[in-house]
Structures are given as structure tokens and as C-alpha cells.
């Protein structure tokens, strides 16, 4: 057997690489096709805006949509200011050294904590220790801690991308450091911060494990009245429909999956669009 010529080897290798790359993103296509194809039929105004009935085997998913909306809003209200301030600290104040290295490692680790462990943490701290009970408040805070690394990392990247000269110009014109951050740095980092925030929203909207023990209600066909109420949420509802309730009509499952997938993918699309739009018209 003679050795293959380098050219043929290369052609074979590149074909295999291409095949791998296609395989990796194939599930995206499959997921979208299967869910859209089977779920579209279930989507109606009634499905989106009414309560579930007959033990979730009929009716709509309105409370789950509202619940997810509340949870995500709560998570952002908590995580955005905190994450943004942390990013400002890292980008504008921290000097290279032990502390900033520890902070960086903490962010990496926080991003790597399993989602179910966030659930345990939320249960122990927010539900029990702070006595919030299983509630929208506890769930939002848990999700907020979970998306903190997403927001810190992307905001920091956005702040670091603002040219150093903007800061120097502002300081040289007699602005204080805080004024410099507010007027010469933050406005130009806004698109990046927005992108990170939207990605965080998408992440929070899709997660199930952190809300399992902190807020999620199995079946609660009414809207939450306060932040101390339990609530249904789309991802948990989908989990319940697909594994816990026998004899659920196929369209209801797929319809729920479609609504959840649409929300999450729209968030990502928005983030990507903002990113590429501002990258294209960047002025410096």
C-alpha cells in the first residue's frame, strides 16, 4: 500500500472537518424544525392568554408566560446594577494584582457552578434563611446570581473596548473620575452592555433547575399577586408536561416548547443584531 499524496490526504481531512462542523450545528436545525412543525398548530391567541385547565391537559399557558416574565425582570433588576458596577470596578478601578486575579477566578467559577447547585443555594439562602419562601423574589434572586457572570463579563469587555484616549481627554478637561466614567466611557459601552444583558435575559428565561425549589409551581392556574407568591414558569411547565403528566396532548407540549424557544432565540437574535449593528457603525 502506498502512502496517499499530501493533496489527497488534505482533501479527505478537510471533508471530515466540514462534516464534523455540520454535525455540531445540526441539532439546532433539528430542534427548530421539529418544534416549529409540531408546535405551530397549537399556537393561538387563546393558548397564549388563558389559564391551563383539566390538570394542564387543556387550555393555555398564560400564567407560565407571566411567571417567566416576572422572574426574568426580577433577575435583571438585581443583576444588572450589581454586575455593571462590578464591571466598572474591574475595568476602571482594579489594578493588576492579587485581588483582581481572585475576582476573575471567582467569576470563572461562578459561571461554572451547575444550575442545580444554584437551586440548592437559592433554597438555603433566599427561601429558608431570608424566609422569602418559595416565591418570585427567591427565584429572581437565584436567577440573578446565576446570570451575574454573564453580565459582568460582557459589560467589562464593552468597557475595556472604549479607547483609553476618551478617559484621558475627559480627565484632562477637569472631569472627576466618576464623571469620566459616566460621560466619556459608559455611553460608548452601552451597546455591549445591552448585548450582555439580553443574553442574560435569554439565559434566565430558559433555565429550569435554579427555579425548581425556589419558586416554580407545578400547577397554579392564576396569576401571581405579589413577589412573595409562587408562580408557574415556561421551562418548568415544559418539563412537567413532558415527564410528569400522562396523556397530555402532543400539541400542548410542542406549543409550550415553541413559545419558550421563540423567546430565548429572539433574545439571542436581538443581542447578535445589536452587536453587529454597532460594530459596523463604530466611530473610533
Amino acid at each position: 500500500m502506498t502512502a496517499l499524496s499530501p493533496k489527497i490526504t488534505q482533501r479527505v481531512a478537510f471533508s471530515l472537518l466540514l462534516a464534523s462542523a455540520v454535525t455540531v450545528i445540526l441539532p439546532v436545525v433539528v430542534v427548530i424544525l421539529v418544534i416549529v412543525k409540531n408546535g405551530l398548530a397549537a399556537i393561538s391567541w387563546e393558548f397564549l392568554t388563558t389559564m391551563p385547565r383539566s390538570g394542564m391537559r387543556e387550555g393555555g399557558i398564560f400564567p407560565a408566560i407571566v411567571g417567566t416574565f416576572c422572574l426574568v425582570a426580577g433577575a435583571i433588576v438585581f443583576a444588572l446594577p450589581l454586575g455593571l458596577c462590578a464591571a466598572i470596578y474591574l475595568s476602571e478601578y482594579a489594578r493588576q494584582g492579587m485581588l483582581s486575579r481572585v475576582v476573575r477566578l471567582a467569576i470563572v467559577n461562578l459561571a461554572g457552578v451547575p444550575s442545580v447547585v444554584f437551586g440548592l443555594f437559592g433554597l438555603a439562602l433566599f427561601v429558608d434563611f431570608f424566609r422569602f419562601g418559595a416565591s418570585i423574589l427567591a427565584g429572581s434572586l437565584t436567577l440573578g446570581v446565576m446570570i451575574l457572570p454573564v453580565i459582568i463579563t460582557s459589560s467589562r469587555e464593552a468597557l475595556d473596548a472604549v479607547p483609553k484616549s476618551f478617559r484621558e481627554v475627559s480627565l484632562s478637561l477637569g472631569a472627576t473620575k466618576l464623571q469620566t466614567i459616566k460621560h466619556a466611557v459608559l455611553p460608548h459601552a452601552l451597546p455591549g452592555i445591552l448585548t450582555g444583558t439580553i443574553l442574560g435575559i435569554g439565559r434566565a428565561a430558559g433555565e429550569t433547575a435554579p427555579i425548581l425549589f425556589t419558586v416554580a409551581a407545578f400547577y397554579l392556574p392564576r396569576l401571581p399577586q405579589s413577589v412573595f407568591d409562587q408562580a408557574m414558569a415556561l421551562p418548568y411547565h415544559l418539563y412537567v408536561l413532558s415527564t410528569q403528566v400522562p396523556n397530555v396532548g402532543v400539541p400542548i407540549r410542542y406549543g409550550t416548547a415553541l413559545v419558550l424557544l421563540t423567546i430565548v432565540l429572539l433574545m439571542n437574535l436581538a443581542a447578535v443584531t445589536i452587536r453587529s449593528h454597532f460594530r459596523a457603525k463604530k466611530k473610533w
Partner: peptide
């Protein structure tokens, strides 16, 4: 391909689980 990989990362775990069950 890069957007595809990003989308894959965005799909919620519970949706992938659901697709796993049915396919």
C-alpha cells in the same frame, strides 16, 4: 457556523431534553 454554535448554546436545557424524549 459561529452563529449556529451560539444558537446551540442558547437552546434551553429543558427544550433539548424534550427533543431528546421525542426523537
Amino acid at each position: 457556523l459561529k452563529s449556529g454554535v451560539e444558537l446551540l448554546a442558547a437552546i434551553p436545557s429543558v427544550v433539548l431534553g424534550f427533543i431528546g424524549i421525542v426523537t
